[in-house]
Structures are given as C-alpha cells and as structure tokens.
Design a protein around this nucleic acid. Structure first.
Lengths: 198, 198
DNA sequence: CCAGATTATTGACCGCGGTCAACATAGGGG
DNA sequence: CCCCTATGTTGACCGCGGTCAATAATCTGG
C-alpha cells in the first residue's frame, strides 16, 4: 500500500527549488552546480537526486516555469493582427531562450516528451505555446490555404532556427527579430500567384 | 619562430581519429569514451587533449565528415524538380541526424561558428549544405516571391524541427518524411491567392 | 655531435554529475 | 507504547571529461 508523501519531504523539495531559483537569479542557469544547491539547502547530495531524477529535471522545472510565465503574457494579448504583431508577441520568449546558450540547449533537449509518461514542464509549456499560437492565428489576416496548426508549426520552426543562429553569431535581439520577421512574412503571407499547378 | 608540426604528432592524431572512427562504427557516437580512444591508440589521456580541444571537437570532425559525405550524394542529384524530390534528396542527411539523439545534440551545438576563427567541420558542412540547397532551388518549380536563399533557410528550419520531433516521439523516418513533406509543400508552393494586401 | 630551444607526451589530479548501501525518521496497527 | 514497515536522508564512492607541471622526444644552429 502506497503511503502518502511526508511533509518533511515536500518541504525539502521546496527548499531545494527555492535555493536553486536564488542561485539562478544570482549567477544564471549555466553556472548552477548541484553541490551549490544542496549546500544552500543544508542537505546531502543524495537527497537532491531523491527529489530530482537528474540536474536536467531541475532545469526543466526552473526553465519551464519561466517559459510558462512568459506564456501568460503572450496569452494576454489579443488575436494576431499582423506579422509584426506576431513577432513582437513572441520576442520576449525568444529573448529568454537566447539569453544563455545553456538555456536553449536544455530547452531543445527537453522540448519533447522522451516517454509518454515523463512529460516535463518544458514539454508541457510547448504544448501550451502551440495551443496559444493556434488560437491567436485563427481568423488572423494570414494565408488561408493552410491550417492554423500548420502555421503554428512553422512559427515554432523559424523561431528555433532564429534563436539558434542568434546564439552562434553572437548578435543581439535585433538580428533575431529582423530575420524572424522576414521569414514569418514569407511563411504567413506568401505573395505568390499560384500560376502553375505544382 | 614557429616550428613545423612534427611527423610523430600528425601520426598520433590520425591514429586517434582512426581509433575513434572504429569505436563509433562499433558502438555508436554516444557511447564513445575518451579513455577508450586513448587506450586503443596507446597514448595517455593528456595526449588526446593536446590534439583536440575537447571531446566535442573530435565529434565535430567525425560527424562533420559523415555529413560531408552525405552532401556529396546530395550534390550529385540535379536541380530540384518537386517537393517530393527535395524531401527524398535530403532524407539521408536527416536520417543520419536522427539516428542518435547525441548526434543531433552535437550537430545543433556546433552548427554555428562560436567564434569567427574556430569554424568547425559541422559549421563548414552546414554552409556547404546551404550553398547546395540554394543552387538546386534556383530555377526550381517553386514560389517566385522569395529568394532561393530564403527558401533554403526555411528548408533548414523545417528539417531541424522535424528531426527534433522525430527524436522525441520515437517514431521512425516515415513520420519525419511525411511531416516534412507537408511543411515544405506549404513553404515552397503556397496556394494562396494574395487577395488582401497584408 | 653536442647544447639549448620547441614540441609532444605523460599520468596524477580535479570538478562535477550521479549512485547506492547504510542509516534515520516518520506513521500505523497490535 | 513499541515494533514494523515505508519513506527520507546521508556521504563515501564512481565515471568521465578535462588540466597541468614534469618529462621525453625532436629539431636546429654552432
């Protein structure tokens, strides 16, 4: 018979999460060490891994909640009115993802569900992101020949590639935004007359 | 005065590379250990890092040369004649990238030049990939409202996102190919009448 | 052929993520 | 109240990537 989780345990977990958040806000995600967290939390190393399967699982939570907060903002804006509106709306999220290479790496690695059961915070957030995009794309002033779902897929694909590029070339948000705007223009509002049936 | 690289050194490096290739062909990229390589090569661990800045640098070479070989095949086909032709042409590359999660991770991490000087094999290969795509897209039966360069960017973005998704959901190439085909159809041959000026 | 200067190699050592058998601390019947 | 069992916690230990001062091998000019 499974017994309920003890209060002591949840408190330990919350304490570790709190310490981790503090460390991240002090020195960023990439420099966080598990040792730091357990020292700050006053527990042994093993305890950490009793609460989180690995370091990535902690990062999944920390980054996932950040993304989720940014999605709250995104959710608050109305339906998309233009390409520029789309770009402006998702830029905060992309800025966060490109703020640290490590964050982007984690995000990509944990973006999908590895197994059906172990869907993490980031994976959940991405599903939510997709739902939000689809909802705001519906009825938007964009191409009608493909579904909002497919439009959303494209936005995500271009977003990821733009962030990846911006991390490589070490340019700022400016380049990211401009490149994305061009790509989304071509994706969401193609100007082609379909003269040929190809 | 800088002295020339000694023959012994080149031979050591080549031996390490050879051993590494063997190990990879035996047990894949992810399971390769630096210790394995140096043991097989009959040198000390430090020697490895005298020849490669880190393990990633070795992977960059090994994966880069694989990609380059696949690009040779791609280069051999003529200009793109259809969406299906594009998909079939690049599928070998995408299959390789999705063969191991580790390979894809390395590929993404090293896909851009971190510094201007240290452009690795993978980054070079991607540049070549882009050039090849652009060349084969020019004059293709696709949309005319955007440049071949932009078309190529989109293909790369959709490719990456398709591979990433296929790694998460653990489906085979089939799903990857189908999803990519749909996305590229919408990207390269939009069916929209531009009735509105948006 | 030798001496000094460069380059190549060595292996003990470190940092850090992750493991695990042993131990501590709760609950819940009897 | 005590014992039993499930749950929590511990810290020594491991694997593996990466470092570096010391040593060996090689080259070059005199």
């Amino acid at each position: 018979m499974a017994r309920a989780k003890q209060l002591r345990s949840v408190k330990t977990r919350e304490r570790l999460l709190g310490c981790a958040r503090e460390i991240v806000s002090d020195s960023g995600f990439a420099d966080l060490r598990v040792e730091q967290v357990v020292t700050a939390g006053g527990v042994a190393k093993g305890t950490f891994f009793a609460h989180f399967s690995d370091k990535d699982a902690l990062m999944d939570i920390l980054i996932g909640e950040r993304v989720d907060a940014l999605l709250d903002d995104l959710d608050a804006v109305g339906g998309f009115r233009s390409i520029a509106h789309v770009v402006e709306s998702i830029m905060p999220l992309l800025s966060f993802l490109s703020s640290e290479r490590y964050v982007f790496d984690i995000f990509l690695r944990l973006s999908g569900a590895l197994a059906v059961e172990k869907v993490g915070a980031i994976a959940k957030a991405i599903c939510r992101y997709d739902r939000i995009l689809v909802q705001k794309l519906k009825g938007g002033p964009f191409r009608q020949d493909i579904s909002a779902e497919l439009q959303s897929e494209g936005i995500q694909a271009f977003s990821v590639s733009s962030v990846a590029l911006s991390l490589c070339t070490e340019h700022g948000d400016k380049t990211l935004r401009d490149r994305l705007a061009i790509q989304l223009q071509a994706w969401l509002s193609p100007k082609q007359m379909p003269d040929r049936d190809m």
